[in-house]
């Protein structure tokens, strides 16, 4: 079974908003990158598929060269190889990223594509379903449990929804997006970290692929959200709290 796992490097969530905005505007910024947390869950899930016959686990990232170390961290969890699509100086939108991933899928012909539910930097939550639509493949998003049928041709999944859990069965090949409670990603071992440095990465230039030149979504501008008023009333105890809530007519 061939498994393709998508990995996006994102800014660490301790990055101050101002630094993150500078980074987006391609200004000088002091930002620590990490692989998107949901993507590490996808990598872990791929590794757990080894028992179900996964013998080729390939990671793919649409990202610039400077972020290759983050792909290597994910590789060191135990994947076999990696592919990079380098956008160069362009800022790609989600549609362009999905088309680039589609190119890799069509070339690699995996049985399953494991992705994260959302990238925690711009919270788009759309590349997985978009890719599935472009490929006309079945999809299961926000998956918190996944079982491969013994024949290896179908997976039964539980997906987290606003109302509870939906259970679906999808026939492979399919796109699966992983939610937080699917698994606990392992930490890379030192030997694997060493080994991952030697894994060759296949690199494509975005500009040389049959992909759209222009994005469908452009960024107009950035702002810092209005803060909340910041004035806080301290209640000494439960009695005073209840009195304040009643006085402000927040409770009867």
């Amino acid at each position: 079974m061939k498994v393709l796992v998508t990995v996006k490097p994102v800014a660490d969530h301790n990055t101050p908003a101002s630094e993150w905005m500078a980074l987006q505007k391609k200004e000088r910024a002091n930002v620590n990158f990490i692989p998107n947390e949901f993507d590490l869950i996808a990598v872990e899930q791929a590794l757990r598929l080894r028992d179900s016959g996964a013998d080729d686990i390939c990671l793919v990232s649409v990202t610039t060269e400077e972020h290759l170390p983050h792909l290597r961290t994910a590789l060191a969890m135990g994947a076999d190889r990696g592919i990079v699509v380098d956008p160069g100086q362009r800022h790609l939108d989600w549609h362009q990223i999905a088309v680039a991933l589609k190119f890799v899928v069509e070339k690699e012909k995996p049985d399953i594509v494991l992705m994260g539910k959302q990238a925690t930097d711009d919270d788009a939550c759309q590349v997985a379903s978009m890719l599935a639509g472009m490929l006309d493949w079945p999809q299961a998003t926000f998956v918190s449990r996944m079982d491969v049928a013994p024949a290896g041709d179908q997976v039964t999944v539980e997906r987290e929804t606003d109302d509870g859990i939906d259970v679906l069965r999808v026939t492979l090949p399919a796109v699966i997006s992983c939610d937080l409670r699917l698994n606990e990603p392992r930490y890379p071992t030192l030997p694997n970290l060493m080994r991952s440095r030697k894994i060759p990465l296949e690199v494509y230039q975005y500009s040389q692929l049959p992909v759209p030149d222009e994005p469908n979504v452009e960024v107009d501008s950035y702002e810092l959200p209005l803060g909340r008023n910041g004035v806080i009333t301290y209640a000494a105890d439960a009695d005073e709290l209840v009195a304040i809530l009643k006085e402000r007519k927040l409770i009867d």
Binding site: T15, E218, Y222, P225
Partner: peptide
């Protein structure tokens, strides 16, 4: 709202 709601972004769709 992006980046855990710490940043507001205005986006435009061109398709």
């Amino acid at each position: 709202n992006v980046f855990s709601g710490m940043v507001t972004r205005w986006e435009r769709i061109t398709s």
